[in-house]
Computed example of a mutant assay.
Amino acid sequence: MNYWLVKSEPSVYSFDDLVRDKKTGWDGVRNYAARLNLRAMKKGDLAFVYHSMEDKAIVGIARITKEAYPDPKDENWVAVELAPDKKLKKPVTLAQIKADKRLKDMALVKLSRLSVQPVKREEFDMVIALSEEK
């Protein structure tokens, strides 16, 4: 299993919207590196959902339910289908991630503008632990 992070502005499409909809096509990505990451996603992989702009926090986990297929808006690009897995006990902010030396190499810190990123298993587990701290 692989781990990922996908970004969305919550005013456009939030994790709560994903929970309400039960699944969604993650389309509209127009970056070559992000497209490579979408193509690498496999059914069953997990992805953090990161609210960019306003919240700047990881708020939930989604599961990849359908591997890369042509983006319905532009077939030169790809989309994947996501379904909600679970909401984090509490959001993990970008500031928390940057403050944790164990996460200094996380793509969210190093490649902050990339909208679809790989996450290492250890990083995934650390973020989950941060979300469960009191």
Rank of each mutant, 00 (worst) to 15 (best):
S112Y: 12
T24Q: 06
Y3N: 10
E122I: 10
K66I: 05
P70V: 11
A95M: 09
S11F: 09
K90G: 00
W4D: 08
L94K: 10
K98T: 05
P72C: 04
I97D: 01
R39P: 02
D71G: 12
V119K: 03
M126H: 08
K104N: 12
K90L: 07
K134L: 14
D55H: 12
K56Y: 00
T24A: 15
R102L: 10
H51V: 00
D71V: 05
S52R: 01
T24G: 01
K7W: 02
Y13P: 03
A79L: 05
D85K: 12
V116K: 04
N2W: 10
L46H: 12
A68W: 02
K7T: 01
P70E: 10
V12Y: 10
G44E: 03
M1S: 13
A95N: 13
V127E: 02
T24N: 01
Q117N: 09
V12S: 14
A57C: 05
A62T: 07
L82R: 06
K86V: 11
V109I: 12
V109W: 04
E75S: 14
K101R: 13
D74S: 09
E133V: 13
V119A: 04
A129N: 13
L18N: 09
K110R: 15
Y69V: 08
R121E: 15
Y32V: 11
